[in-house]
């Protein structure tokens, strides 16, 4: 019986131990051309051209130096350049115009021609309608703490009739504690789930996963993503909660873009979140690409910014 008892833990350890081993699976070669560019008004078109590499191995994605880039608009060749700049990009002199559609074609030896098309969305405006309030608590030793409890309301003015997506981010600024002249910045987290009194329905809010009318974003993100699906051709207001501890004005930035960038943005978020799980527990997600015969993204955007001033209320503590 004693022998049996000794045998039990030995055998249990044997069977419970799993093993991991590197594995070689024959996969198709995935060498491909990668084309990336975001275009906006008043800035020349600048394109990054890279090589994609097989996943397994030591190689990493590299710039392709000897490609040829051609830019077209309405079927007309605007410019063609060869060779990469010293800053590793292909910079053209073509400055996009709002509403125009541009097509790029990239040729490089050993790769098929890659093409992609993008349009620059029109300019939008952002206005702060209601600012938040900040309380500054000053301790007897001069130590200051801040607490924001206010809500922010902004208006987004973009009267396009096309489907647009908006990415709202807020940058807060803080004095660096050891050196008051040094100001640090960080992205703040708008708390949309605390939002009230929406002039538009909840369905305007696109969560990072679903376009469902009754789904709310509850995971903490440092952005709000929304679309004009229900207010095309009109303006809208957006109210959200914001917690921060600074009296320095924050920057509110709203980036507008089309569905191509939206798909890229969402798929990248999904890939990052799905990579946290093993392949055993979830299906991986591919990052969206609109490049024919390659990978990458060519998309248009436009930006609008506004300053968020906080009303400061100072409280002195004994």
């Amino acid at each position: 019986m004693h022998r049996f008892i000794l045998l039990v833990p030995f055998l249990a350890v044997t069977l419970l131990s799993s093993c991991e081993k590197e594995i070689e699976l024959k996969t198709k070669s995935s060498k491909c051309i990668v084309v990336n560019a975001l275009i906006t008004e008043n800035e020349p078109i600048e394109v990054g051209v890279y090589s994609g590499v097989d996943f397994v191995g030591r190689n990493s994605s590299q710039w392709l130096e000897n490609a040829t880039l051609a830019v077209y608009s309405n079927g007309e060749l605007l410019e063609e350049i060869s060779g990469m700049n010293t800053d590793s990009s292909y910079r053209t002199s073509v400055v996009p115009v709002v509403g125009e559609t541009y097509t790029i074609k990239v040729d490089c030896q050993r790769y098929p021609s890659a093409t992609a098309t993008a349009t620059v969305p029109n300019k939008l405006q952002v206005k702060v309608l209601q600012t938040d309030s900040v309380r500054m608590f000053v301790e007897s030793d001069g130590y200051k703490t801040y607490k924001s409890s206010g809500e922010v309301e902004i208006s987004i003015i973009d009267t396009t009739s096309e489907l647009r997506y908006y990415l709202l981010t807020i940058t807060g600024y803080y004095y660096f504690m050891k050196n008051p002249d040094d100001i640090k910045s960080k992205w703040l987290t708008p708390e949309y789930n605390n939002a009230t009194a929406q002039p538009t329905s909840m369905s305007d809010i696109l969560t990072h996963l679903f376009e469902s009318a009754d789904v709310k974003e509850i995971e903490e993100k440092d952005y709000i993503l929304l679309s004009n699906q229900n207010w095309r051709g009109k303006s809208t207001t957006l109210r959200f909660g914001l917690s921060h501890n600074s009296t320095i004005p924050s920057d509110i930035t709203v980036m507008s873009f089309d569905e191509e960038y939206y798909k890229y943005f969402i798929s990248k978020e999904l890939q990052l979140s799905s990579e946290e799980d093993d392949l055993m527990f979830g299906e991986p997600v591919n990052i969206y690409s609109n490049v024919k015969n390659g990978l990458g993204l060519f998309a248009g955007y436009n930006l609008a910014t506004a300053k968020l001033y906080s009303v400061c209320d100072t409280i002195y503590k004994d």
Binding site: T27, S30, G52, V53, S61, K268, Q271, L279, N286, A299
Partner: peptide, 26 residues
């Protein structure tokens, strides 16, 4: 069947991202 990562590439944000095979391709 399994979906496998097949390529690595530089994405729009300059980060190295992964391209996966078609669903359950391998």
């Amino acid at each position: 069947h399994v979906t496998l990562p097949i390529a690595r590439f530089t994405d729009l944000d300059g980060a190295e991202s992964v391209a996966y095979s078609k669903r359950n391709e391998y």
